[in-house]
Structure formats: C-alpha cells, structure tokens
Design a protein around this nucleic acid. Structure first.
Ligand SMILES: NC(=O)c1ccc[n+]([C@@H]2O[C@H](COP(=O)([O-])OP(=O)(O)OC[C@H]3O[C@@H](n4cnc5c(N)ncnc54)[C@H](O)[C@@H]3O)[C@@H](O)[C@H]2O)c1
Ligand SMILES: NC(=O)c1ccc[n+]([C@@H]2O[C@H](COP(=O)([O-])OP(=O)(O)OC[C@H]3O[C@@H](n4cnc5c(N)ncnc54)[C@H](O)[C@@H]3O)[C@@H](O)[C@H]2O)c1
Lengths: 213, 213
DNA sequence: ATATTGTTGTGATTTTTTTCACAGATTTCG
DNA sequence: CGAAATCTGTGAAAAAAATCACAACAATAT
C-alpha cells in the first residue's frame, strides 16, 4: 500500500473540514468546492485539496465534493464511528471544567473516570463521575479499558501520573501541566500549555515585530 | 538593524528555555549548555542554539550559557518585565477555571475584568473579579486599558464577542471557541481548540499509522 | 605553552509544509 | 453538440523549519 506519510497538521485540519461539512449538511447543501471549504477557515483551496488528497480522491472535477459523502469519508478517516473511554486525572479547576463539558460525548469520547489525590475530593461525584483515588488508578484504568488520559494536575505530579497511566496501558495523553512528559515511544502525548499560549500573546503585545535587546 | 524574521515556533520554545533556566537558577546552577537545555524538552542542541541565535550571541564558546544572564535576556526578550491587563469573556466552566488560575499573575497577566451575558451571573464576584455585562464591555475595556482578551463563550457568540473586543482596542485574543475568528489584521489571535486536541488523539487510537478507507 | 576537550554561532543541507499551476474531467449554457 | 466555465488531483516550485557540520573560541589538562 502506498502509505505516504501524512502530516499531523493535515489531520488537524481534517477535523475542521468535518465540522464545516457537518454544518453544510445541516443546511442541506449538496456540494462544496475546496475553495468554499477553505474560505471560512482561511485556508487556501490548494491546501484543502492536498489534505483530502492524502486519503484518495473523493472529489468530482468540475463540481467539487458531495457534502454527505465527504462527511462520511472524513468521519471514517477520523475514527468518528468509534468511541473511547477517557480518564481525567486532577479534578481541580481545569479538570472540573473538562468533566463538565458535554461536547466530548458527542465526539465519542466518554469521560468514565476521574482521579485525584485530595482525600476531600475522593468519593465525591462530579458530573455523574465518582472521583477516585490515584492509588486505585492503575486497576480501574485496566478494568474500564481506558486508552486515553487527561492530565490536569500541577507540574510537580505530572510525570508520576504519566507513569501510572502508561503503565496501566493508556496509549494517548492530553497533558495540561507545563512540563514535558517522558513516556514510552508508542504513547502519544499532546501538550496544551495554556500559560504559554497567553505568554505568546503577551510577547506580541510587548514587542510586536521589533525586538530590542 | 538586521531583523531576520523569527519563527513563531522559536518564540514558543523560548518560554520553555526560560522556564528551564529559571529552575536551574533556583538550583544555583551556574552554566548550562545548549544540549542540557534541550535535553529534558527533547529538543536538539542545534535547535536551541539556533533559537537563541536569533537574538544575538549570549553564549560562551566552550562553556555554554551563563544561567543568570540567559534568564535575564530571555525575560527581556519575552517582555516578562511588563504587565498586561486581561479580560475574560464567558464565565462558564472554562472561564471560571482560567479566572481561578493563580499562575497568570506571576507572569504579568492580570485578569482584571470578566464578562458574561447571563443575568444570573452578572454582578456576582469570581475570584475577586466582578462579572459584568457584555453590553458594558467596550467601555470597560477602554477604561481599564485592556489589550488582551480571552474568549470562552460558545462558538455561536464568539465572533460577536471578537468584534466587540477588537472594536474596543484589544490587540490579542486567546480563543477557546471552536470557531475561526475574523479580526482586523493587526490583531493577533491564538486558538486553543480542546476538542480538536482530544480528537487528534482519538484519531491515533483509532487508526494509528494505517488508514483504510 | 601546547594539546585536548567542550561548546558556541552560523552557513549549508535536508526535511517538511505550503503554494502554485495546469492537465484532465465535469458541468453548464447557448 | 460544442464552447466556456468550473473544479479536482497532483507534480513542481517555493517557503519555512529543523538538522547537520564545522570553524572559531574558551577552558582545562599536560
Ligand atoms: N486552571 C487554569 O486556568 C490553568 C492555566 C494554565 C495552566 N494550568 C495547568 O493545568 C494544570 C491543572 O490546573 P488547575 O488549575 O486545574 O489546578 P488545581 O490546583 O485547581 O487542581 C489540581 C488538582 O490535581 C490534584 N492533584 C495534585 N497532585 C495530584 C496527583 N499527583 N495525582 C492526582 N491528582 C493530583 C489536586 O488535588 C487538585 O484537585 C496545572 O498543571 C496547571 O499548571 C491551568
Ligand atoms: N469546558 C470545556 O472543557 C471545553 C472543551 C472544549 C471546548 N470548549 C469551548 O470553550 C468555550 C467555553 O466552554 P465552557 O465549557 O466554559 O462553556 P459554558 O457553557 O460553561 O460557558 C459559557 C459561558 O459564556 C456565556 N456566554 C454565552 N454567550 C455569551 C456572549 N455572547 N457573550 C458573553 N458571554 C456569553 C454563558 O452565559 C456562559 O457563562 C466553548 O466555546 C466551548 O466549545 C470548552
């Protein structure tokens, strides 16, 4: 099979296309061109076509893409038909916010477990999920077949949590702690560094283009 | 001045170097080499040197970088000595979590205003900040000289909020809504798309490397 | 002193990603 | 039906970013 390597940026954009095309299908739009798809996301038409092109050719020369069909294919490519169990570790401000978010379920991501070290939180319910002790984490993760973990604990504890997670068989981690995690290479980590996002912006505020040293 | 264009990825990494070097300085480490700096972030030594190189030469051949000096320079480059006023729009789950986060103040980012449309929330205090009506937003932003806005409202309202913010003079926006924002070109937007981050991971879970169509 | 070792700064090279540009397919219109 | 207009798919070109590789220099050892 001619498996060209697909850029991660492409995958990332695929989700945007899927969102858009889902909207369009709700509006009963029949077809859409690469230009239209890219427009509101400001991406060039060529970019859109190249991205889609990695997965075969499902456009129609002269008339664009059939909305329902594209939606179907994208869903398949992006594993939207599957569901996964997700655990959240750290039920502080951020962890609670994530637990409360209803959008994940719609995307096939079920937050089925929450862990913390705080004895005052353990045993309590949050959005219908019981907060359990990190010391039981390994067993529960195996038991519930959880493959995806979200780390929302302070930087100090993040590596420990990551170790337990990977040890228990978790294959992907979304990490909110401002700390690089060392994990086995088959485990995929994505970092969301909110402080850094804001800092980046303050950098632009502070010295726009020019940097004087 | 020879202003080579500096990649945004470089700026982003600079914050990591600053964090690391701040840690090292607390441990009273005197010097650090590019290799050491990169190690725990898994970045190559060459990458580190190139990044730093954009801002002049502050390393010492043969012995690396002087920790305190590097820390100082990075702080300066990254505008760490300045402070900025920040407004948060949308005081739901996510907005509240951000308001509660104490780390921002330490970074010179003061969350001085919070806005919502929900009449049940307006007037209440959250972390010492009063939640105010979006209809007063423009005036308050000008009054408090707020240059940075955080959008934590549902996708539906995001563009409207962005319009008001930019209209009031905000120069940077951190956007959590899963929606591309149209803003004047001098305004800098960074998107944090949490759903997409998780979706990306589920993509990897779903079909690892191979994609069958 | 001189050799040896370690490390920076940076031009050159490679890799990755985006953009261009156009042949070929499809639809529309007169 | 044939001409004109519209699009895709993709190789080629360009741009951006990461990596390599090495001269120049500093510290240390002999
Ligand atoms: N909240 C924000 O807006 C924000 C902004 C930037 C970065 N972050 C980062 O996100 C992470 C979470 O932030 P937060 O504001 O939710 O923190 P928080 O302090 O509100 O919550 C942390 C939670 O983790 C629990 N915890 C601590 N150590 C643990 C461990 N080893 N195992 C399991 N649970 C543990 C604590 O009991 C607490 O409930 C932190 O790393 C923080 O730096 C958060
Ligand atoms: N919470 C999460 O974990 C999570 C995950 C993924 C994405 N998001 C995105 O982040 C954003 C915020 O999420 P949330 O969970 O905090 O939502 P939420 O529903 O908890 O809060 C939204 C808040 O915004 C207010 N609001 C609505 N329209 C407004 C307007 N036009 N102006 C000002 N305020 C307005 C509401 O009154 C509410 O207080 C959403 O766009 C959501 O899609 C959140």
């Amino acid at each position: 099979m001619p498996v060209k390597k697909i850029p991660e940026t492409t995958i990332s954009r695929l989700f945007l296309y899927l969102r858009k095309v889902t909207e369009l299908s709700k509006l009963s739009m029949k077809r859409v061109s690469s230009a239209e798809l890219g427009e509101s996301l400001n991406l060039g038409a060529a970019q859109v076509r190249k991205d889609l092109g990695y997965f075969g050719q499902f456009g129609v020369s002269g008339s664009g893409y059939v909305v329902t069909e594209l939606k179907e294919k994208l869903s398949k490519i992006l594993s939207k038909h599957k569901t996964f169990n997700v655990a959240i570790v750290g039920t502080g401000h951020l962890g609670s916010a994530l637990l409360a978010y209803s959008g994940f379920e719609k995307q096939g991501l079920n937050l089925v477990a929450a862990f913390d070290t705080d004895v005052n939180k353990i045993g309590k319910q949050l959005q219908g999920v019981e907060i359990e002790s990190v010391s039981d984490m390994k067993d529960i993760i195996k038991e519930k077949k959880i493959l995806l973990g979200i780390i929302a604990v302070p930087a100090k504890g993040a590596q420990d949590v990551a170790d337990i997670l990977t040890n228990a068989g978790v294959k992907c981690i979304l990490n909110f702690a401002p700390k690089h995690l060392n994990v086995p290479e088959e485990v995929k980590v994505r970092d969301v560094d909110l402080s850094r996002e804001l800092e980046m912006l303050s950098y632009f505020l502070g010295n726009g283009k020019k940097v004087k040293l």
